[in-house]
Design a protein around this nucleic acid. Sequence first.
DNA 1: GAGAATTTTGATACCGGTATCTTTTTGAGT
DNA 2: ACTCAAAAAGATACCGGTATCAAAATTCTC
Lengths: 324, 324
Amino acid sequence: MHEVAELAGVSRMTVSRALNHPEKVKEKVRQRVFDAVSQLGYVHNHLARSLSSSKSNVIGLVLPSLENSIFSATVKAISDVLRPAGFQLMLAESSDDPKDEEIVISNFLAQRVAGLVLHSTRHSPAAIRMLRGANVPVVENGDMPVDPIDMVVSYSNRAAAKAMTLHLARMGYSKIGFASLANPRATERQLGYLDALAEAGLAPDPRRIVNVSRGFGGGAEAIAHIEHVAPDTDALFCAGDVLAVGALLECNRRGWAVPGRLAIASFDDLDLLRHVNPAITALRLPRAEIGRRSAEMLLARIFEREIPVQSVDLGFEIVQRASS
Amino acid sequence: MHEVAELAGVSRMTVSRALNHPEKVKEKVRQRVFDAVSQLGYVHNHLARSLSSSKSNVIGLVLPSLENSIFSATVKAISDVLRPAGFQLMLAESSDDPKDEEIVISNFLAQRVAGLVLHSTRHSPAAIRMLRGANVPVVENGDMPVDPIDMVVSYSNRAAAKAMTLHLARMGYSKIGFASLANPRATERQLGYLDALAEAGLAPDPRRIVNVSRGFGGGAEAIAHIEHVAPDTDALFCAGDVLAVGALLECNRRGWAVPGRLAIASFDDLDLLRHVNPAITALRLPRAEIGRRSAEMLLARIFEREIPVQSVDLGFEIVQRASS
DNA sequence: GAGAATTTTGATACCGGTATCTTTTTGAGT
DNA sequence: ACTCAAAAAGATACCGGTATCAAAATTCTC
């Protein structure tokens, strides 16, 4: 920057101003500075800027898993809001482990991120202490937490799972099974499923509740489990990722009629669900909207604008299709 | 840090050393420093560290699209290598537009990233100039480029597409179609497809080459195109993402026998391809390995270790399944 | 136990910007 | 032309660390 200043015949301060608040510098001088910048190929140093002004332009995002395609819509939406505002996105993975998340958060704080998005609502006490102490805007995403750290943009896993289960019950299914992964969000969903059974007057049956592994294979596991342990199950609510597709494909393979032999419903409305045969009934969750709102709320907080609400429940929608 | 130093009764320099090179500080003093750190909840400032030492611990990653699940394996692998080494990942999207990429790169350079991974081999001249000038280690990923900026870890789109097309030809298909998106990698793949036709002595037929849109819908578009324009096509090579699945599902819907009426092959071996019926023949690309090696090469360069090769072609593998 | 070699600690400058306050320039009003 | 307020530019200190070299403490040698 020093060289730019010399070449333009002004002080470093003027260069800084020309770059950050062009309107504060006279047209002629500004032009000289810009010329010098491009002539020297000068690249602004955001590190120094952030350090000096204690204002960073990086937002940290913590996801449970980097491999899960479900999050890509959220990431994309966040990035789309952040970029025009001149912010960068930093990414890390918590593996749904509060201890890992704590490390990741502490790294982000060390980078002096301007804000954080956490796709998780379970945090270690130390992590919460750090975040509260750091006075950094935080948005939580994965669920509606009981005791939010700061801001929240999400839907309620429990409410959504309950709604879908009730929907199945209303369609006449009475032996509804539940398949999910083992993570905090799945646990909430299971509670919602049980809520719904109770409300519909159906007896919960542990035989119909199954934990499976990730991916399409998990869906097949669920079907195998049902055949083995509770063959009279008439509907299966797959509360995770691509489980429903895996289950459907496995049914196709076995020649089970869907929904005749077994109805299938999914927790998340992947594009794929519309294209398989039969198309799968699903909960549509506002993944992109969550990202957009999260980023907007962060920016509002960073620029010290008023934010209307601290906590936004974006809800969900049931999309009834042929599989149920 | 000043307060930590006071509380521990040492100089700031000693605190810095205790944190960065613990072995350079006497056991007793080190302990006092650590105690002070945790007592005060001190969070190291990486910004200041990077500025002062001109060594950043952030790696920039530029992807063509943040929505595409294909990249998640690569991202995950990069992150897994970077994290233990104390590096953070910064993410941005180029939309396959060299101009957008240029902006993103310039932002990353402004953040003084320690290294860059570019999942693209098409760059604007200005971007190349910046990168060469910045003296930052760069790995390119999406293809084997003719004129690499620095390091390369990839496979060759052209070679892979050629291999798959030849594979289909050898299996006896002679009217092979090609469906792809419109992006630089797809263009290379099309060249490979044409290479193969020439080598197999098959006449290329523009009616069998179709550009489609992203997602499962694109596969359906391809099938519709074939029925309309070149119904005698006996095999379709889908050179992009989930196209093959979309095509297969559309065939199922129409009752076309696969591979009887039309064989289908995919460019990328998504997990899904193994689970649909029939399972789809595919090119297996070393997505995770690419991420791992890219990150390792960057780290090697950053730590000034010798790197054995500048350019790594990790190749590909043809997985023959029921769809062809 | 003196002196040399080595290890540990500290003092100081600087990384590359911006905040803040001061000085200079500009220009409007009379 | 002169005054004075406002706008533009500059001087200086500092953001929070680390590099570097000097000083102090420790260990080793004979």
